[in-house]
Amino acid sequence: MIVGILIHLLLLLLFAPLLAGIIARTKALFAGRRGQPVLQLYFDLLRLARKGSVISKTTTWVFAAGPVIGLVVPLIAALMLPFGTFKAPLSFDGDLILFVYLFALARFFTAAAALDTGSSFEGMGAAREVTFSCLAEPTIMFALLVLAKLSGGLSLDVLLGDHLSASWRGGSGPALGLILVCLFVVLLVENSRIPFDDPNTHLELTMIHEVMVLDHSGPAFGMILYGAALKLMVLGTLVVNLALPWATPWWALNLLLYLAGLVLLAMLIGIVESVMARLRLVRIPQVLIGTTLISVFALVLVLR
């Protein structure tokens, strides 16, 4: 199990920052620019780790707890997911609930850290983050319930395990397709991507996530960037496992397939970000309620 945990963590820690680079590169291509190096986030993280920091005199230990928990949570959550055909090292009945509530823990402390600065901008971001995730949460649950019903298991390892290829080919293809769409939308919301949020603008009033981290600097800011990259890979793993259920007899090929899936997903996010405009803030709840309804429909299809 220790070996499994180490492999999982190494894969996650080493590969995750690459995805951010791929998204940026894709967007640059669409805009007709050359764009930053694909490895830019690695350089940024190294640089931030060595830097000193500026902190607000209003803040307390809660301000530091935000980045720390934001970085730790994706690490633990990743241990409950299978990476391609690599089994999840930490797997038990009902771990899907822990998975969802871990991200809630991170959200609690990120939002609390934002409010700790006493800045109105960050308060606004925190309010938006916790409000919109109220709508994303039922969607994730319904999607996981569809998988649970199809696989008959209660751990993410089984939910995203061997049953998928049979389920896709069997009669459950439409339901899986629907929840794939839903999970992709949730991925965009949770990782603060266009059309729900814009990771590039820091001061626009439509901002959610970036505005919450305005006052962080140095290593703590590095932790936030790293945590965001890890979260993208963890939630991306949900989507990739679901979309690419094939397994070959060679583990190296399976790993390559999984990593290629993640790269493709990153490119897809880049394309979505390039061709879509950010939604008006008041439209976001409507879109999220829409995805919830789609996921309910998928559940009904499975129960039929």
């Binding site: 830097k51 500026v54 902190i55 607000s56 209003t58 980045p67 720390v68 800045s119 305005l214 140095g218």
Partner: peptide, 16 residues
């Protein structure tokens, strides 16, 4: 984070 803060003491300023 604490060790890093210890090595590079943070500058305390107003919230931006």
């Amino acid at each position: 984070l604490f060790v890093q803060r210890y090595r590079h003491p943070a500058v305390v300023a107003a919230t931006w």
